[in-house]
Simulated scan of single mutants.
Amino acid sequence: MLTLVALVEYASGAEAAGQRYEDAVLAFLGRHGGQLERRLRGTDGQTEVHVIRFDARAGYESFLVDPERAALRAALGETAPTTRVIEVHEV
């Protein structure tokens, strides 16, 4: 089991496009053995926090190279969200 926290930041002026992108790619998690446990949006509307679990690290790695995800990201170009991913565990 792999648990990740993703801090997603939307480009200024491209928040709606970024949110649509996240809606789309988060729907791909299941095909890679992943599950979105929590999705929280900052009050500024420019930041989200996702808690995601994968059955195995291989699922996360396959999610990262998913061709549909890559195509959606490429379509956004420089307005694509930036994401910092942190591997976490329960304490």
Results as ranks from 00 to 15, higher is better:
Arg53Val: 07
Leu2Ser: 08
Gly45Ala: 05
Leu4Thr: 14
Glu68Gly: 10
Val25Phe: 08
Glu9Ala: 11
Arg57His: 13
His89Tyr: 15
Leu36Val: 01
Val8Pro: 00
Leu36Pro: 02
Phe54Asn: 03
Ile86Cys: 08
Leu72Cys: 06
Thr47Pro: 01
Phe63Asp: 08
Ser62Tyr: 07
Val51Pro: 00
Thr82Ser: 15
Leu29Glu: 00
Ser62Thr: 15
Thr43Asn: 11
Gln46Met: 12
Gly30Ile: 05
Arg41Trp: 00
Asp55Ala: 13
Phe63Ser: 09
Val51Trp: 01
Arg39Leu: 04
Gly33Val: 04
Glu78Gln: 09
Ala74Thr: 13
Val91Glu: 07
Leu29Asn: 06
Glu22Arg: 03
Val85Arg: 05
Gly18Pro: 02
Ala80Ile: 03
Thr82Lys: 15
Val25Gly: 02
Arg31Val: 07
Phe63Glu: 02
Arg31Gln: 03
Pro67Phe: 05
Glu87Asn: 05
Val25Trp: 03
Thr83Ala: 15
Ala14Cys: 13
Asp55Cys: 13
Leu2Lys: 08
Val85His: 03
Gly13Val: 12
Asp44Leu: 06
Phe28His: 04
Ala16Ile: 14
Val91Ile: 12
Leu4Asp: 11
Glu15Cys: 10
Glu90His: 15
Ser12Val: 13
Ser12Asp: 15
Leu2Gln: 07
Asp66Cys: 08
Leu26Gly: 09
Thr83Asp: 11
Gly18Val: 04
Ala74Arg: 10
Ala16Asn: 12
Val91Gln: 08
Gln46Ser: 15
Ala17Arg: 07
Arg41Ser: 01
Ala70Glu: 13
Val88Glu: 12
Ala80Thr: 06
Ser62Cys: 06
Arg38Trp: 11
Ala71Pro: 10
Val65His: 07
Val25Leu: 10
Ile86Lys: 04
Glu9His: 13
Phe54Gln: 01
Glu22Thr: 06
Leu7His: 15
Glu37Cys: 04
Ala16Gly: 15
Gly33Leu: 11
Ala75Phe: 02
Arg53Ala: 07
Ala27Gln: 11
Asp44Cys: 07
Val85Phe: 09
Glu87Thr: 12
Arg84Tyr: 13
Asp66His: 10
Arg31Ser: 04
Glu78Tyr: 11
Arg53Thr: 11
Ala17Leu: 09
Ala56Glu: 11
Arg39Lys: 01
Ala11Trp: 04
Val49Gly: 10
Tyr60His: 09
Phe28Arg: 05
Leu64Val: 11
Asp55Met: 11
Ala16Pro: 08
Arg53Asp: 07
Ala75His: 01
Val51Phe: 01
Leu2His: 00
Thr82Arg: 15
Gln46Leu: 14
Ile52Phe: 02
Gly18Phe: 00
Val65Lys: 12
His89Gln: 15
Gly42Ser: 09
Glu87Ile: 11
Tyr21Met: 00
Val85Asn: 01
Glu78His: 14
Arg38Asp: 14
Ala80Arg: 05
